[in-house]
Amino acid sequence: MLRKPETTDGSAIWALVRECKPLDENSMYCNLIQADHFRDTCVVAEVDGEILGWISGHMIPNDDAFFVWQVAVSPKARGMGLGRKMLTHLIERDECGEAKALKTTITEDNDASWGLFRSFAKHVGGELTDEPHYHEEDHFDGHHDTEHMVTISLPEMDDDLAKAA
């Protein structure tokens, strides 16, 4: 079941993110705030009471774009298209209805994320572009690889596409 997170999901989300290396780990409090303040633009995938998937995101202020901060899929649920299903679910929500593009940042070596977002772009018929955005030296003081800003154009989705996700 895909649903909006509840505040009581914060610790389970935090544990899932920790299980999904190499994702950056936020504090449990950060995940609690995301599940509370940003619940309308985040999603959890729950099976038999266990959270197996999580996407945090938000609409970018003064931009017609939805930004995906983090995607986590439990090793128990990988290879089932859950990431793409959650992304499609999010962009179909009324809260993301104004988005003309989906944006995210990905390091060059994160093959799983590149695969997910390329698959999603193909699925929605959107164009994927990328460029270095947060630079290793300029923004991370050499402590983190450069993050590429990935932009996927979001054509109008019809009901058939949303169901096929």
Results as ranks from 00 to 15, higher is better:
residue 153 S to N: 02
residue 136 E to A: 14
residue 87 L to N: 12
residue 134 Y to C: 11
residue 112 A to S: 12
residue 89 H to G: 00
residue 65 A to F: 03
residue 118 R to D: 05
residue 58 H to G: 06
residue 134 Y to V: 09
residue 142 G to W: 09
residue 39 R to C: 09
residue 7 T to N: 13
residue 76 K to I: 07
residue 71 V to E: 02
residue 61 P to K: 10
residue 91 I to R: 07
residue 108 E to R: 15
residue 129 T to D: 06
residue 114 W to M: 13
residue 129 T to G: 08
residue 68 V to T: 10
residue 3 R to H: 03
residue 93 R to H: 01
residue 90 L to W: 09
residue 19 E to H: 14
residue 56 S to F: 00
residue 149 M to D: 02
residue 135 H to S: 02
residue 106 I to Q: 08
residue 71 V to M: 06
residue 8 T to V: 07
residue 45 A to R: 07
residue 109 D to C: 14
residue 47 V to D: 04
residue 145 D to G: 15
residue 34 Q to V: 13
residue 141 D to H: 13
residue 72 A to W: 09
residue 104 T to H: 08
residue 52 L to K: 02
residue 28 M to W: 00
residue 163 K to D: 14
residue 129 T to H: 02
residue 1 M to L: 06
residue 53 G to Y: 12
residue 59 M to T: 12
residue 90 L to T: 11
residue 162 A to H: 01
residue 34 Q to D: 15
residue 21 K to M: 03
residue 98 E to P: 00
residue 147 E to H: 10
residue 54 W to L: 08
residue 136 E to P: 04
residue 55 I to G: 06
residue 109 D to Y: 14
residue 46 E to F: 06
residue 74 S to F: 02
residue 6 E to F: 10
residue 16 L to K: 09
residue 39 R to W: 03
residue 159 D to P: 00
residue 125 G to C: 04
residue 124 V to E: 04
residue 124 V to C: 04
residue 129 T to W: 01
residue 8 T to S: 14
residue 156 E to G: 03
residue 6 E to C: 12
residue 158 D to G: 12
residue 91 I to E: 01
residue 21 K to L: 06
residue 158 D to M: 01
residue 94 D to F: 00
residue 50 E to M: 04
residue 50 E to V: 08
residue 75 P to K: 11
residue 141 D to A: 14
residue 4 K to G: 05
residue 1 M to C: 04
residue 98 E to H: 03
residue 93 R to D: 03
residue 138 D to W: 04
residue 160 D to K: 06
residue 6 E to L: 15
residue 120 F to E: 07
residue 91 I to A: 00
residue 149 M to V: 09
residue 95 E to K: 11
residue 138 D to F: 06
residue 129 T to P: 05
residue 49 G to R: 04
residue 75 P to D: 12
residue 126 G to N: 08
residue 130 D to K: 13
residue 32 L to P: 01
residue 119 S to C: 08
residue 8 T to Y: 01
residue 136 E to N: 12
residue 60 I to W: 08
residue 44 V to A: 01
residue 119 S to D: 11
residue 105 T to N: 13
residue 21 K to S: 08
residue 11 S to T: 07
residue 44 V to W: 00
residue 67 F to H: 14
residue 27 S to Q: 10
residue 142 G to Q: 13
residue 79 G to S: 07
residue 51 I to H: 03
residue 161 L to W: 00
residue 20 C to E: 10
residue 42 C to M: 11
residue 40 D to S: 11
residue 85 K to G: 05
residue 146 T to A: 08
residue 85 K to T: 11
